[in-house]
Design a protein around this nucleic acid. Structure first.
Lengths: 229, 229
DNA sequence: CATGTTTGGATAGTGACAGTATCCAAGGGA
DNA sequence: TCCCTTGGATACTGTCACTATCCAAACATG
């Protein structure tokens, strides 16, 4: 198929596809003549993945390129490619300063990992660790307790999530498919998870604080409460 | 304290503080003279919150202003203020197109909410719902199954998270503190949760696929494997 | 073969965003 | 008094993800 058709079937403008080609997110199409190229189904599939990563997952374009490159780096084995791909994903910055809050956060996180029995199987720690420390430090600076005890339930839930995620990954028949699935699920389930969490917040908040539903400007009576339609 | 001291104690440059003042993220300081203003501890606290929301939580500046305004809108009761504040938070865009994948995603999400027993207590659905539908649709388009059955475990975990989060919120003694806590925890626990999930992925991936640790370019033997330091 | 349209590639421009740099007049300290 | 700092207003910068414009080579058509 030509670029125009690829654009139509993917819903991505030709200008954007050209941009992705330029940035190395898409393999160039097979050159038919000097001024025409043919694209296949795998281009379409790749394009959809890239789009989802960038639009849904908010992955920067340059990072998406690196992730895809890592996912296709056949010099690594399965496990390492998984690690390399997810490691290339965007991570919020690790701790910049080395103040007291950061040190305390680091200790909390270390304690948490030990309680969870997690060890880093790679040589260097995942960038996710830095993100975790930064976030915990920020919370601590605001006066919210984030010690290992508070974090432990979140860690356990994360472990459950990981089991479910890897189950889904293993449903893929091919190794390449599993790598792609790992990347896609890691990134694209994040908004799913966060949305569900926010919806659950609303439910739980309604359960605890709600019910009276005193709304200004509307005549919604308190009797229909949270059980209403 | 003066602006310079506020800057020093918060680690935020005076230029940025001025920017936040301009954007309405910070109350102006108490004007001492025509050219000097005094800031209090509450300014410092607010500034730290704003910084955390923007830097850690990636909340756009304009949204952070709205969230804070909603959190301080005393015309609403506790529950509604919580809802208004979290509703003002940035949400990835809802479904733009109304294609087949979106429709299927919407049905999956509806089924999920029903299975979870969740109802929207507010008049209009949370923007998180739109995000969820968009993400599920994107996953479906890539060929990853995201029906209610697959989502259900995530939903249950989200419910558990919400219980833990609201417990933390209720630890705050004052109503205003609870609102702030709800906003801060909603936003700042997101990177915590996502980091933990990624770390858990690494653990689970090592458990399933790892062990041999065949690394190119390094002499790490396969014997130290995933149980190594 | 002439001609007009389409195609793909290169280049430069756009708009949003989050700050940052500069300038200025009014205070405050030596 | 003199100079340095302070806070406020204005304009600038860099980044990012596109997007609009050109251009020359093909292809389709008469």
């Amino acid at each position: 198929m030509r670029l125009a058709e690829l654009s139509e079937r993917s819903g991505v403008s030709t200008a954007t596809i050209k941009y992705y080609l330029r940035e190395g997110l898409l393999q160039p199409g097979h050159r038919v003549t000097a001024t025409q190229a043919a694209y296949g189904e795998e281009h379409l599939r790749r394009l959809r993945l890239v789009r989802a990563l960038i639009q849904i997952g908010k992955v920067p374009v340059a990072v998406a390129r690196d992730v895809i490159a890592a996912a296709e780096d056949t010099s690594l084995d399965h496990h390492m490619r998984l690690g390399a791909a997810t490691r290339a994903l965007p991570h919020p910055p690790g701790p910049a300063a080395d103040d007291e809050a950061t040190g305390a956060a680091r200790r909390s996180v270390d304690a948490l990992l030990e309680q969870l029995g997690w060890q880093d199987p790679h040589d260097e720690p995942s960038p996710a660790l830095g993100t975790l420390v930064t976030s915990v430090a920020a919370l601590a600076r605001l006066g919210y307790p984030c010690d290992a005890a508070h974090l432990l339930p979140y860690g356990r839930l994360a472990a459950e999530l990981a089991v479910a995620d890897l189950d889904t990954v293993e449903e893929r028949p091919t190794a390449a498919g599993q790598i792609e699935a790992a990347v896609a699920l890691t990134v694209l389930y994040e908004p799913v998870l966060l949305s569900l969490r926010r919806l659950a917040h609303i439910q739980e908040s309604a359960r605890r604080f709600g019910g009276q539903e005193v709304r200004p400007g509307r005549s919604a009576g308190p009797d229909q409460a949270a059980t209403g339609a």
